[in-house]
Design a protein around this nucleic acid. Structure first.
Lengths: 134, 134
DNA sequence: CTCAGATAGTTGCATGATGCATACATCTTA
DNA sequence: TAAGATGTATGCATCATGCAACTATCTGAG
């Protein structure tokens, strides 16, 4: 817990961040998020995601609860610390962008936001394969 | 040489790509590009860049010529194969974007291009630290 | 001119992330 | 009930990386 709090001030590694983002999404959707889904969503091997989750669980950011419907599986969810770490990292990133665009006029900022949103939608609808390493 | 040609059809790893891009830039500028400069530009350790260059040189994409003014150093430059591989990778990436934006109207595409160019300039002028891994 | 220190680059070594193959438990279906 | 599929974890080899140490060369103070 102290460990998680200490992370709030620092930088959350990208690998951790993307997992927390996915977990927050599925948590919003109310789905029981499983390891395999996360691995597939990120284009990673199950074994890699297993180790990432183990690491996040050790640090108290993610909770692995037994799935009552399938005793092989776990239901993954953010802990309070995990949600806090995610919020802090998002805030840090928003600050980076806000600072970088401080000199821009409002219309350009609004237009960029609109077009990036549209781009995200376009890529999602095409299920564009996304490699973090390539 | 056959190795380099066979790469033209495939995907150039990002680590190789960014090095070739830098080399093409400095080649345009006419500067003798050295290892240390490349490493610093990418925020990597010299030893890492040394290994990347060694790999690119083995594959015939980069040439290491002795620096006539400093016998410790090498002058790095793209080979013909390297320039071809870079051009092919750039074309592949342009195709990805072109395909993804195929359904967009021209005005939005032009506006996105303008704003991304402006963003690039803004980030460059701020010397924003850029981590490929974070 | 000479020698101490700086600099360009390479290599040894340990570390961490990854994928594949495998193992084990549990579920599903014939 | 047995055979195969599925969810997850682990052993193992591989690869990229940073740090430290090394060689060769350059530079500057004396």
């Amino acid at each position: 817990m102290g460990r998680a709090i200490s992370q709030l001030g620092g930088e959350l590694p990208r690998a951790d961040f993307v997992v927390l983002v996915r977990l927050a999404q599925t948590s919003d959707a109310g789905d029981p998020c499983r390891l395999r889904d996360l691995a597939h969503a990120e284009g990673l091997d199950q074994s890699t995601m297993s180790r990432r989750i183990a690491s996040l669980a050790e640090r108290g950011l993610v909770e692995r609860r037994p799935d009552p419907d399938d005793r092989r599986a776990h239901r993954l969810q953010l802990t309070e610390s995990g949600a806090a770490a995610l919020a802090a990292e998002r805030a840090r990133r928003v600050s980076l962008v806000t600072d970088a665009l401080a000199g821009w006029d409002e219309s350009d900022k609004a237009e960029l936001a609109r077009l990036l949103g549209k781009l995200t939608d376009t890529l999602d609808s095409r299920r564009t394969p996304w490699r973090h390493t390539g």
